[in-house]
Design a binder for these strands. Sequence first.
DNA 1: TCCTCTATATGTTGTATGCATATAGCTGTT
DNA 2: AACAGCTATATGCATACAACATATAGAGGA
Lengths: 134, 134
Amino acid sequence: MCNCHKVHHFRHLKEGCPGFRMEKFVQPCILLLLYERPAHGYELMERLQRCGFSGNVDPGVVYRNLRKMEEEGWVKSEWESSESGPARRRYIITPEGEDAIHGFAVHVRYQMERLKGFLDKYEKIFGNGEGNSN
Amino acid sequence: MCNCHKVHHFRHLKEGCPGFRMEKFVQPCILLLLYERPAHGYELMERLQRCGFSGNVDPGVVYRNLRKMEEEGWVKSEWESSESGPARRRYIITPEGEDAIHGFAVHVRYQMERLKGFLDKYEKIFGNGEGNSN
DNA sequence: TCCTCTATATGTTGTATGCATATAGCTGTT
DNA sequence: AACAGCTATATGCATACAACATATAGAGGA
């Protein structure tokens, strides 16, 4: 059982093991997915879900971040009239977006170090989850 | 050199390698520090700095989070009239705060997995930093 | 016709960060 | 005694983002 449900003091954010937000982390993920292959927003939502974004991926977050990244010049989009279903916006990554991925990767690595620093200290004090069983 | 400085597309957040925020992560860190030993806010700022929080730790963030955690019941505080310097608020962690640490640890571990998922994919595509040397 | 699925977009709200600033007591210096 | 500097806590403001709800619209099937 997820430990966080023992701690019922989290009020805001009803779901998804709160306390930490999805945050700006969608952007590097989307960029990496687009680097793998171009896609439209709806497809990205599905792929994000399989990509560690637990539960529901909010459409608003995805589309707004795509827009923002297009403003940044990290992605480009063009309307694609599909033969089945409504028209959709096909996004591709730009060279600048590729640069951004590398920049993000550095930060992600840095963030991981911080989290690791916390967990190391935590496990040093409380042990490796033994005192944690339910 | 930090790769992020090559990427000059970050507009918001002038400093500290932006794109990721310090976020709610201060709370688990503070709780763990208080578990080690009780402290007042000013001391926590210094210890946080040594604890992975690069650069400047904002007093506002620390004091506000201490207040919030006191509302949650995770910490308690009492005024302490020191013989040298102004009075200060001494914080101690409560049993509920200790519970919260365990809850946070689960989330931190979960977050780390997400970041690791990104980095694994990233390194699988771009290699282990070779294509990254300045 | 109506419903559902695909697909994109926007409005609102709550909350957090980052920065600046206010306040105040104590200490050492000139 | 006045002043600057350090310790210590607190608050106001602008910005930004997540989360949620909702709007729009085309296509296909019952």
